[in-house]
Amino acid sequence: MKILVLGAGAIGGYFGARLLQARGDVTFLVRERRAALLRERGLVVHAADGRFKQDVQTVLASQLDAQFDLVLLACKAYDLEDAIASIRPALRGDAHVLPLLNGVAHIARLQEAFGAERVLGGSCHIPATITEEGEIAQLAPLHRIVFGLLPESGAAAKDKLQRLLALFRATPVDATLSEDIWQDLWEKFVGLTTLAASTCLMRSAVGDILASDEGAAYVQQTFDACARAAEAAGHPPRAEARTGFEQLLQQRGSTLTASMLRDIEAGAPTEGAHIVGDMLRRVQALGVEPGALRPAWMHLQSYEHRRQRDRSR
Results as ranks from 00 to 15, higher is better:
Ala239Gln: 10
Pro236Cys: 09
Leu91Trp: 01
Asp180Ala: 04
Gly234Asp: 05
Glu32Gln: 08
Phe68Tyr: 12
Gly16Gln: 05
Thr27Pro: 03
Leu192Met: 14
Gln284Leu: 13
Arg242Glu: 14
Leu110Lys: 02
Glu135Val: 08
Met202Ile: 03
Glu265Asn: 11
Pro172Trp: 06
Leu261Glu: 11
Leu195Arg: 05
Leu185Phe: 07
Ala241Gln: 06
Ser198Ala: 15
Arg88Asp: 07
Leu261Gly: 04
Thr131Gly: 06
Ser123Pro: 01
Phe114Gln: 05
Gln183Leu: 08
Arg109Lys: 15
Ala10Tyr: 06
Asp94Thr: 14
Val288Arg: 03
Arg306Gly: 10
Gly154Arg: 07
His274Phe: 12
Arg118Leu: 04
Ala273Phe: 06
Leu38Lys: 10
Gly42Tyr: 06
Glu152Gln: 14
Val71Ser: 04
Ala108Thr: 11
Trp182Asn: 08
Ala47Pro: 09
Asp263Trp: 10
Gly272Ser: 01
Gln284Val: 07
Ala225Gly: 01
Gly267Leu: 13
Gly191Tyr: 02
Ala116Tyr: 03
Ile107Lys: 05
Arg238Lys: 12
Ala140Trp: 07
Pro127Asp: 09
Arg307Trp: 00
Gly12Val: 00
Arg41Phe: 10
Gly244Leu: 06
Val283Thr: 06
Gly16Cys: 09
Ala175Arg: 01
Arg282Ser: 13
Pro236Arg: 11
Leu60Ala: 11
Asp213Glu: 12
Ser254Gly: 09
Leu43Asp: 11
Arg109Pro: 01
Ala47Lys: 08
Val56Trp: 07
Glu179Leu: 10
Val119Pro: 05
Ala116Met: 08
Pro99Gln: 06
Thr171Ser: 06
Glu132Phe: 04
Leu248Asn: 03
Ile87Gln: 01
Ala285Gly: 14
Ala8Met: 10
His106Lys: 07
His305Glu: 15
His96Trp: 06
Ala268Glu: 13
Val26Pro: 03
Ala225Met: 04
Arg228Ile: 01
Leu110Phe: 01
Ala105Asp: 15
Ile275Leu: 15
Trp186Met: 03
His46Gly: 06
Thr270Tyr: 08
Arg307Phe: 04
Glu304Cys: 02
Ala268Cys: 12
Leu150Met: 08
Ala268Gln: 12
Ala85Leu: 07
Phe15Met: 06
Ala239Glu: 13
Ile107Ser: 00
Arg242Tyr: 11
Gln54Glu: 15
Thr129Phe: 14
Leu73Ile: 07
Thr222Phe: 14
Ser86Ile: 10
Ile209Gln: 04
Val59Leu: 03
Lys2Met: 05
Phe52Asn: 07
Val45Ile: 12
Leu91Asp: 04
Gln250Leu: 11
Leu142Arg: 13
Leu256Phe: 05
Cys200Met: 12
Ala140Asn: 11
Val206Glu: 07
Ser62Val: 12
Arg281Leu: 13
Ala170Pro: 03
Glu265Pro: 06
Thr199Tyr: 00
Leu185Ser: 04
Ile275Lys: 08
Tyr218Val: 12
Arg282Phe: 02
Arg242Trp: 12
Gly115Asn: 02
Ala155Trp: 04
Gln63Asp: 15
Ser178Trp: 00
Ser153Tyr: 00
Leu64Gly: 01
Phe189Asp: 00
Cys200Glu: 05
Gly215Val: 02
